[in-house]
Simulated scan of single mutants.
Amino acid sequence: MVTALIRAALPSDEPVWRALWRGYCDFYSVPLPPEATQRTWQRILDPDSAVMCIVAEIDGRVRGFANCVVHENTWETQPVCYLEDLFVAEEARRHGVGSALIEWLRNAMRAEGWARIYWMTREDNTRARRLYDRFTQADGFVRYVLRPATAPAQ
């Protein structure tokens, strides 16, 4: 295992974050328009935004990131953290980087008083699920996505 420095994303991280983000979107086969990527990065840097990004740095190079949204919710009295995106560069996998990112968030949960951290992944993402299962078990919820262009069932 390598020791990764986990820290908040900085404006100077933009080029490497974008490269990793591209890898993440490619993995999930999501062709995001450039304006969505640009807006995400703007929100990450905006101190008034609920979106935050932490990065994992090894030997001075960013090798992974976690994009999160801290928000209020109806089931808890404290905020919760949605770990929306987690990605580690291929060459840095299996070295504890993903685990270090989640552990940093777990420590932040305790320090900030979040009620919980939650996330999802594709059912067939077995590599990531092996990591996630070391922290907690999947809760059995099924996700539904409704978009403006989705026609109602008849």
Results as ranks from 00 to 15, higher is better:
residue 130 R to F: 02
residue 82 Y to D: 08
residue 74 T to I: 13
residue 98 G to Q: 02
residue 130 R to A: 10
residue 49 S to Q: 10
residue 125 N to H: 06
residue 75 W to H: 06
residue 120 M to G: 13
residue 123 E to W: 10
residue 76 E to K: 03
residue 25 C to L: 07
residue 117 I to E: 02
residue 66 A to N: 09
residue 78 Q to L: 04
residue 116 R to L: 14
residue 81 C to A: 14
residue 134 R to Q: 11
residue 80 V to G: 15
residue 102 I to M: 03
residue 129 R to A: 06
residue 131 L to H: 08
residue 115 A to S: 15
residue 128 A to M: 07
residue 79 P to W: 00
residue 32 L to C: 10
residue 88 V to N: 05
residue 48 D to L: 12
residue 28 Y to M: 12
residue 45 L to C: 13
residue 130 R to G: 06
residue 78 Q to H: 10
residue 110 R to V: 15
residue 59 D to Q: 11
residue 69 V to R: 00
residue 75 W to N: 04
residue 91 E to T: 15
residue 57 E to N: 07
residue 27 F to E: 01
residue 49 S to Y: 04
residue 82 Y to I: 09
residue 109 M to C: 15
residue 126 T to N: 07
residue 63 R to C: 15
residue 41 W to K: 01
residue 128 A to P: 12
residue 86 L to A: 12
residue 44 I to Q: 04
residue 103 E to A: 12
residue 117 I to D: 01
residue 122 R to D: 00
residue 125 N to G: 09
residue 47 P to L: 00
residue 133 D to L: 09
residue 41 W to Q: 07
residue 112 E to Y: 05
residue 73 N to M: 07
residue 121 T to H: 02
residue 48 D to F: 08
residue 50 A to Q: 03
residue 89 A to K: 04
residue 61 R to G: 12
residue 45 L to W: 05
residue 39 R to V: 12
residue 38 Q to T: 15
residue 77 T to S: 09
residue 49 S to A: 14
residue 132 Y to K: 02
residue 108 A to V: 11
residue 114 W to G: 07
residue 118 Y to N: 08
residue 118 Y to A: 08
residue 100 A to C: 09
residue 70 V to N: 03
residue 115 A to G: 15
residue 93 R to I: 14
residue 114 W to Q: 01
residue 109 M to F: 07
residue 50 A to C: 11
residue 66 A to W: 04
residue 116 R to F: 13
residue 62 V to W: 05
residue 95 H to T: 15
residue 126 T to E: 10
residue 32 L to I: 14
residue 93 R to A: 11
residue 51 V to M: 12
residue 42 Q to G: 11
residue 79 P to M: 00
residue 55 V to G: 08
residue 29 S to L: 03
residue 97 V to T: 08
residue 27 F to H: 05
residue 38 Q to V: 13
residue 65 F to E: 04
residue 61 R to V: 15
